[in-house]
Design a protein around this nucleic acid. Structure first.
Lengths: 221, 221
DNA sequence: TGCAGCGTAATTGTCGACAATATTGCTGAT
DNA sequence: ATCAGCAATATTGTCGACAATTACGCTGCA
């Protein structure tokens, strides 16, 4: 089944590989949040030059996954309640906009694919495999984001915000709760997009993300 | 008078200086849009190592001011009608949100400062100095963005989107038209924020940006 | 004991050189 | 004349070393 890899350009240079490796390690929590990233240490660990590490760290910074101070070094961002709220505020605005644009800009074929994905997702939920839940949810959101056809928007959401969101989800131990209710929300959003109802699509998406935020906040408290 | 410099961290390292220099040259059009950025050429021109240039180029890429292809090089983004529309769509959503958040999160002192800025701006307009218009407009928007207190949002708008917007403005020759009408719009937004009316502030800001977009489109056509 | 000042160690910033890849221009065959 | 293939060139990617800055611990004094 198609998953996130569909949307990520494959690595070509050595820096790309290190960047993706580090990004995964950070998002999945293998490198603990708040810890320092030593260039020399990483360069020996991954057996590459410091230049490669530095460039990878630069890219991580533009994803907002780490913070740098000149002549001091880079630290992985700390996960805070305020950060989560701010992130979801931005996400609500941007993805709501994505849903609105997708309702008018997606081709009929793309809408059909989205409906297919929903069906597959439904079957998966039926059989109780919550394993696919995370990937399925991401696929759903990715398609709508890409369907907006707004490159600026797509880059913001996919290149930076979504990795941060995944980081919060993973490290707060969000393993597929809210499965069935989220599915219903997805269904209604797809319906609105199929009907080319941009206003409704935006409203439903914003509400969907709002619920998702509340769910996360409940876990955090 | 306080201007943009207030919001930009001062350069400490050599890379910072080159980055800011290049960014200015690109935004102001000294380096023509669409042209290629040669690392060796720039390194000799600015008398720094290629490592410095590379890191500066990396940062420019995360601002969406240039595009890179592996083993090929970096080109300055091309200014297109679609790009402008996409940019303003995102800007409308994000700055609308900023205005809404600012209405609730700005301190009374910040609101007072904003009113002061408006008065200063008014006097400037009265005396016919359209010179200050660009900087004054930016200051206005910056304060509201910062007033949102959402770091994610602030970073997105100030670190990347706004430079692109300036690039479009400058290179399309937008020298202070729409001065008086824009001032009225600013006044109403400040009024809404002063009244702590978040909904209205968002709506007015979105409309303000929409008008601004139409103004730009008219020039482009 | 607590802290100011200093010197050493460790880390980041910058540099020039080499390796790998892409572009360009030429040669020659169809 | 056109295009495929190859050689030469130019550009980017990677590396190790040196310089500059920061962090740490030690000494000595109050």
């Amino acid at each position: 089944m198609a998953s996130l890899a569909m949307f990520t350009a494959q690595p070509v240079t050595s820096t790309d590989k290190i960047f993706i490796q580090l990004r995964t390690d950070i998002v999945e929590g293998f490198i603990p949040s708040g810890s320092k990233l030593s260039e020399t240490e990483l360069s020996t660990k991954y057996a590459v030059s410091r230049a490669v590490i530095r460039e990878a760290i630069n890219r991580l910074e533009s994803c907002h996954l780490i913070e740098r101070k000149a002549n001091v070094g880079a630290r992985i961002v700390a996960l805070t309640m305020e950060g989560l709220v701010e992130l979801y505020q931005v996400r609500e605005a941007l993805e709501g906009m994505a849903a609105r644009l997708a309702a008018t800009h997606m081709s009929d074929a793309e809408v059909a694919d989205l409906n297919d994905l929903l069906s597959t997702h439904f079957e998966t939920v039926q059989t109780g495999e919550s394993y696919y839940q995370e990937a399925g949810d991401l696929d759903f959101h990715y398609r709508i984001i890409v369907g907006s056809k707004n490159h600026q928007l797509i880059s913001m959401l996919i290149d930076s915000i979504y990795h941060l969101i995944r980081m919060y989800r993973v490290q707060l131990g969000m393993a597929g709760p809210r499965v069935t209710t989220a599915f219903d929300e997805h269904r209604h959003i797809v319906q609105a997009i199929s009907n080319r109802d941009a206003e409704l699509a935006e409203m439903l998406m914003r509400r969907h993300i709002l619920y998702s935020k509340r769910n996360l906040e409940r876990k955090l408290a």
